[in-house]
């Protein structure tokens, strides 16, 4: 009855009118290209034969992509996964501190987290080339600490790529985590301590579970774009640390092999979607919505 009445009251076209711009946008700039991408991924032909791509249910594009670039696919998820974990470990304490101890400095501290965004992605990543340069301070210290072999390097390795991704996506992790922590009523922590939980247990049983929506949002916002990233691998890695994004980029912009690139894009998307669904099931869907 309630639903019926609600429907009745909003019988006018208003809700649909309000939805229209968003739906149009999604349709034009997401669904249509996505359809085209699928279409393209099943085309055949090559640049050698002129630009004559034609649709031919070319499923082999998918198998060839998977077979030929297994390493790049694996690296994409490995690097993105590691960067996500490191970003969480690094930003959780920072977000926690700002939320609960920041006091009147909260906004300024948050600004510091977002500050790198004022510099373009490319420049930020290029800066890491300098930071991790072979004779730079960082590498010298790492060598002194015997964390890097003598004459070894950090730049052009997977480590550099992971470091770059972690750095570039850190605010995407820190901000949602901060928001969900900031909303937690501190009386709940007092209640936990009142009920014989020490500080650590109170965190584990109350604060952390309540911050999960932020953690989930942060990991998704970090992992999904990181898995498709190629800038970090291009500027900080070497061909042996290339990710699937690099391959897609080179197929689209270099060798003009649109069908393969489209197939790879689609595989990447499907795998990410699958992983996200698994993740959502593991942590419980209600955590996704808060």
């Amino acid at each position: 009855m309630g639903v019926f009445r609600l429907f009745h009251r909003h019988q006018g076209a208003t809700p649909y009118l309000l939805l229209t711009p968003g739906l149009l946008w999604l349709g034009l700039f997401f669904l249509a290209p996505l359809g085209f991408l699928i279409y393209q991924s099943l085309e055949s032909g090559s640049i050698v034969a002129g630009f004559g791509f034609h649709f031919s249910w070319q499923w082999s594009n998918y198998w060839d992509a998977l077979k030929g670039y297994t390493g790049e696919f694996e690296r994409s998820f490995e690097y993105a996964g590691l960067a996500t974990i490191i970003a969480l470990v690094v930003s959780y304490p920072v977000a926690y501190w700002i939320a609960f101890r920041g006091g009147r400095w909260k906004n300024l501290l948050l600004l510091f987290i977002v500050a790198p965004f004022f510099v373009t992605y490319l420049i930020r990543t290029l800066a890491w080339q300098t930071i991790l340069a072979d004779h730079g301070v960082v590498v010298r210290i790492l060598i002194d600490l015997h964390l890097v072999a003598h004459g070894g390097r950090v730049l052009a390795t997977g480590t550099a790529v992971i470091a770059g991704i972690t750095y570039n996506f850190l605010p995407f992790m820190a901000l949602p985590v901060y928001v969900s922590l900031e909303q937690i009523d501190q009386t709940l922590v007092e209640a936990a301590e009142d009920l014989y939980a020490n500080k650590w247990l109170a965190f584990l049983r109350v604060t952390f579970p309540l911050s999960l929506p932020g953690v989930v949002a942060g990991t998704l916002l970090t992992f999904i774009p990181a898995a498709g990233d190629f800038i970090n691998a291009t500027l900080l890695g070497s061909p042996t640390s290339h990710m699937i994004g690099n391959v897609i980029n080179s197929k689209f912009n270099g060798t003009i092999d649109y069908p393969s690139a489209a197939a790879m894009s689609f595989i990447l998307m499907a795998v990410i979607l699958g992983l996200v669904l698994l993740y959502a099931r593991a942590v419980g869907t209600e955590k996704l919505t808060g």
Binding site: D185, T187, L188, E190, A191, A192, E193, D194, L195, Y196, A197, N198, K199, A202, R205, V206
Partner: peptide, 17 residues
Amino acid sequence: PPYKRDVNTVFQSYALF
């Protein structure tokens, strides 16, 4: 600390988890 006291509290806001 509170967790070592044989005292329990009913909070004004209830503070249910």
